[in-house]
Nucleic acid binder design. Sequence first.
DNA 1: TTGTACGCGTTATCAA
DNA 2: TTGATAACGCGTACAA
Lengths: 367, 367
Amino acid sequence: MEECRKTLCTFSGLAMVKKGIKVNEKGIILVAVIKDVAKLAGVSVGTVSKYLNTPELLREDKRAAVEDAIQKLNYKPNLFARNLRVQDSKTIAVIAQEIRNPFHAALFNTIRKEAMKYNYSVVLYSLNDINGNFDTLFETLPIHYFSGVISCYFHDMEQSIDFAKRHSKVPMVIMTNSERYFDEYDSEKIVHADFTQGIQKVCEYLISLGNTRIAYIGCRTKDQLRDPKLKGFMLTMEKHRLEPHSIVRLEKEYTMQTGYESAEQILRSGQLPDAILSDTDVMSIGVLNCLRNHGIQVPDDIMLASFDNIEQAEYCNPRLTTLNVPIEAMSVKAVELLVAQMENRECKNTGNAFELELIIRETTKNR
Amino acid sequence: MEECRKTLCTFSGLAMVKKGIKVNEKGIILVAVIKDVAKLAGVSVGTVSKYLNTPELLREDKRAAVEDAIQKLNYKPNLFARNLRVQDSKTIAVIAQEIRNPFHAALFNTIRKEAMKYNYSVVLYSLNDINGNFDTLFETLPIHYFSGVISCYFHDMEQSIDFAKRHSKVPMVIMTNSERYFDEYDSEKIVHADFTQGIQKVCEYLISLGNTRIAYIGCRTKDQLRDPKLKGFMLTMEKHRLEPHSIVRLEKEYTMQTGYESAEQILRSGQLPDAILSDTDVMSIGVLNCLRNHGIQVPDDIMLASFDNIEQAEYCNPRLTTLNVPIEAMSVKAVELLVAQMENRECKNTGNAFELELIIRETTKNR
DNA sequence: TTGTACGCGTTATCAA
DNA sequence: TTGATAACGCGTACAA
C-alpha cells in the first residue's frame, strides 16, 4: 500500500504535474477516474462501467448515485484506456490532399461533421505534407489504430486504390473519380463521380460554343496517362477531330499561383486559344488573374471553364463557368458507408455514384 | 493458460475481426505487439521498450536483433497503451473557428505542419460546429487527454481567455487580437497581434484618401462592445470627427455570402458611402460581388479595404487592399511556445507580438 | 442486479 | 546492460 502510493506519487503525479494537471499536495491526481466515481457513489467500478455502457441494466437508485458522482467529480472516461481495452479508437483517418484548397476543406469539414454525428473523431492526413508519397503514409500512419479510413486523394487514384488494397481488412471508403475503379474494388467501399464524363461535359459545352482551339490546364500526376480528366478532354477533342491548342501540366500543386503560371505559359506560346479548360476552380482563379494582367478579356477574348464549383466560383469576377462536384453529398455518403462497415451493418451499395452538373456563369458565352 | 487463450479468442480476436484486422484461424491477432517482437528478437519486452525510447542504452547486438524483429513483424507501438502508461498523448487540440475560411485553414495547416516537426499530432475543434459555445466545448473536449491546446478563436476573445483561465494548468497558447489581454494572462502563453491598431491603420489610410463617409462591415460578436476591430474603427473616426456612414454587423458567419448581404444592406440605406471597411477579406469578396451586381465600380464609386490578406486577396478582381496578418508566422510561434510549455522548457517571451502591415492593391486609390 | 478479477500493450522501477 | 513485474484506466466474463 505504501509502495503503491509512492508509485502514484512519482509516476502519475509527476507525469501529471508535467502535463499541468491539478494534483494535491500529496501528488495525488485530482482528475477523477472510474475508481473515484465508484467510491463516491458507493458502488463498484463494474457498476460505473455499466452505467457508461449499458445504463438500462442498472437499478434506478444506483444509476442516480453514479450519475451524481460523475457530475460532482466532472468525470470523463479515459479514452486511451477504453480504446486499449476494446481495441477500437472510434476515430476515422481522412487521407486528403491539401486542406487549404477550398474543395478539400469543404470535403474534410463535411466528413468531420458527419463523423461527429456517429460519435467518431476525425484525424487528417494530408498527402501534400509528404509530397503525395503513399509509401511514407504507409509507414507513418498507424492504420490499425483507426476504426476506419476515408481516402479522398483524387490526385493519384492508382496509388489510392493500391493503398486500400494493401489494407483490405481495414474498414475503408475511397472516393474515386473514374469508372475503371469499380471493377477493381468492392463497390460498397466506393463513392464515385466520373471525372472523365464530367470533363467531357465541359469540353463538349466549350466546343458547342464554337471554340476549336482549346487549351487544357492541369497538374502533372504521377500516372499521367490515366488522369481521368485529361482523358475526358482528349476523348472529346478526338471525337470532334480537334487538336488541343496546348496542354499545360506543371509539376506543382493545385494553387491559384500555379493557375497563374500555367496561363502565362499558354500566353507565351504565341497564338491565343479560343478557350481554356482548367481542371480545377482554384487554378482558374489564377488564370483569370493572369489574363487580366495581360489585358485579355474573359469571355470575349478567351473563354474559361473548369471543374469543382467551389463556393468562390460564384464570387470571382467574372464568375466561373464550372462543373459542380457534389462534394458535401459525397462526403456524407462516404461516412455513411464507412460507419456501416465499421459496425458490420449491411449497407445498400446503390446511390454511390454522383452526377456532375454543368454550371454556366460568366466566363463563357455564345459567340 | 487455456483460459487465457480462450479469452484472447473471444475478446481480442472478435474485437479485431470486427475491426477487420487480420487474425489467424485460432483467432490470434496477427498485428505484432511488443511481446512478439521480444520473442522473435530473443529479448525481454523491457529491452524492446528501451530500444524504442532510449536505444543508446542498448548493446549493439541486442539493438540490431530488436531492429530486425521490428522490421520483420512491421511492428508499430500501440499509441493507446503508450499514452495510457505515460499519461501523455503527444496530441495538440486546436480550437479554431471554421476550417473552410481560408484564413483559418492557413492557420490550422501551419500549426499541423509545425506540430508534426515536434512529433505531435493535431486535432481540430471547430467552434462553428457548436455555435461558438465555449460551454459546449468545455463539456465535450476531453482536455486532459491533450498534451496542450492552441486556442485561436478570435471571434470572442473574452470567452477564449475565460476558457483558458478555467484550464490554467493545461499547457496552452492563445492567439489574441488586443493589447488588453496582455495583463490578464501570462505573456508566454500569448501570441499577439493588435487588431485595434490594425484597423486604425486601414481606417487612417481610407481617410487619408479623402473618404469621409465610411461604412463598416463585420459580424456580430457576443461581446460587441469590446470587438477590437470595431473599436479601432470607432476610435479613428472619432479622432477625425467623422460619423460612420453605417455599421453593419449581421449575426451570421464570416462568409462571402454574409459579405454580400452586408453590402446589400448598406446599399439599401440610400446614400452610398465613399468607402467600405470590411473586417475580413472573405467578407470583402462578397462585397465586391454585390457591388458589381449593382453596377457600382470599385474603387471609383466606392473604395474597399479589409483585413487578413488571405491568398485570395491578391487574386480577386479588383485585387483587395487589405491588412496583412502574418498568420503563418504567428502559428509557428504558437507551436514553439506550446512545445516549450509542454516540455517544461523556458522560452523567452519576446517576439510574440506581430506587426500588421497595410497592403495596398486595387480596391483603393488616390482620388 | 452487482462485484471481482483479469487483461488490453506499454513504460518505469528495481534487482540482478 | 538486461529482465521481471507492477501499474496506467477501463470493459467484460463470471461468480455471487
